[in-house]
Amino acid sequence: MKNKVNISKTTDIIKVLLVENDKSKISEFTSALDQSNYHISQVSTSGMSLLREVNAFEPDMIIIDIESPDRDMLDSLNRISKSAPKPVVMFSDREDTDLINALVKSGVTAYVAGEVNPSRVKSILDTAIARFTEYQQLKKELEVTKQKLTNHRVVEQAKLWLMKTKNHSEEQAYQSIRKMAMDNSQKIEDVAKNILSLASMLEMSS
């Protein structure tokens, strides 16, 4: 069952998928976010059917009970899915607010603890989105840095090989890689990779 809401064309609208079948919980969330830019659709499916709902609905955010067995599946979506990752916000009926707050502070996951309080829940969701965006940004930067490091290492190795086999100085080795890259309109790291694969072929046959 799915209660579709009308989604206007405002770009600010945030599509939220609430995975829950408890009626009172659903109405708590719906009324708490009634006047906000968060538009809630609710589903009560589990497992693969839930996965299909997520794929079809393409929510910007998912809200799920912390005790739901589907959490592992939704969490791993962000790790493996090629589509845009989404923040998963957990709610809990427990009142251990302090401990859950500790989690929120330290982690990338947001929790709504205890009763769904209208004034609080929106700010929690706002924070969750902001934190998630920040985290994704960091992750991307990290990947770029890692890629740069790898590229750097490849070029260094190719240089070393040229220095060893051609008696080039470091500068000469670098210039000859650069020239090859320019002549073939290739990236320096791609030329370096080619040199290294050639080198390993030569070493194998010798």
Partner: peptide, 10 residues
């Protein structure tokens, strides 16, 4: 893929 144990068999 990852799914919960309770949903595996179904």
């Amino acid at each position: 893929i990852t799914i919960s144990p309770a949903n595996m068999v179904s």
